[in-house]
Amino acid sequence: MKIAVCVKHVPEQQAKRIDPATKRLDRSGEGGLNPFDSNAIEEALRVKEATGDGEVVLVSLGPEKALDSMRKGLAMGADRAVLVSDDAAAGSDLVATSLVLAKALEREQADLVLFGQQASDSDGAVLWAAVADRLRLPLVSQAAELTVADGKARVKRQTEFGYDVIEATLPAVVAVSDAINEPRYPSLKGIMGAKKKPQERVGADELGIESAQLGEAGSRTEVIALNDPPARGDTTRIEDDGSASEKIVEFLAERRMV
């Protein structure tokens, strides 16, 4: 069983800002593995452990330093990492990003392709469907439980109406929710071993992708302007010093809510 997990390197939560010049998310500072992706890595490791053998490969599109994030996944137990890195790819939208990932995944021919619930930077939660369409593979999203057996992925997923059970024949694309598992922490041994695991950097041209298909040139959407959001009323923040309950009641009383 070969399992590919698509992961993303995202800026640190606190430091997120949009660069007014490029109108893109500023990716120059510190970053890390998209926290939602660790659920997908954990699930891949569990499937691998349950089936007894196999390989977990991490696939990403991002800058050079995305390898740092991928190493965290390797430390958790993934076997290898493939990073598509290309200067021309910065600013790629869904159409361009899904094309690159699909090409990289085609090369891997995995039995199962996993995604996390969303990207914590763009709040995007749609990439898997675009990738599945390009790979012409069946898709199940919002997986709260996943079992792989007899050439099928069986998924319990949550929708607006409750829980569905869906089966998809392998190879398939599955996007897991952040409630599916509790990701393991990398062990010291895992962290030490991660550096030695194969980490491949691939250029877009090696995947047969032209630079016109990447970045802003290859994107079909654009950011036109950045504006201030509609104002929200003042927010009050208090640290509990033992009197928080009284302060909450005062706050509610002022608004005639108690």
Binding site: V95, S98, V126, W128, A129, A130, D133, S219, R220
Partner: peptide, 15 residues
């Protein structure tokens, strides 16, 4: 969400 993103890829359209 899944239909919209699948359609965008199919049509090479912006989402």
């Amino acid at each position: 969400a899944d239909v919209a993103a699948g359609l965008a890829a199919r049509l090479d359209a912006g989402l």
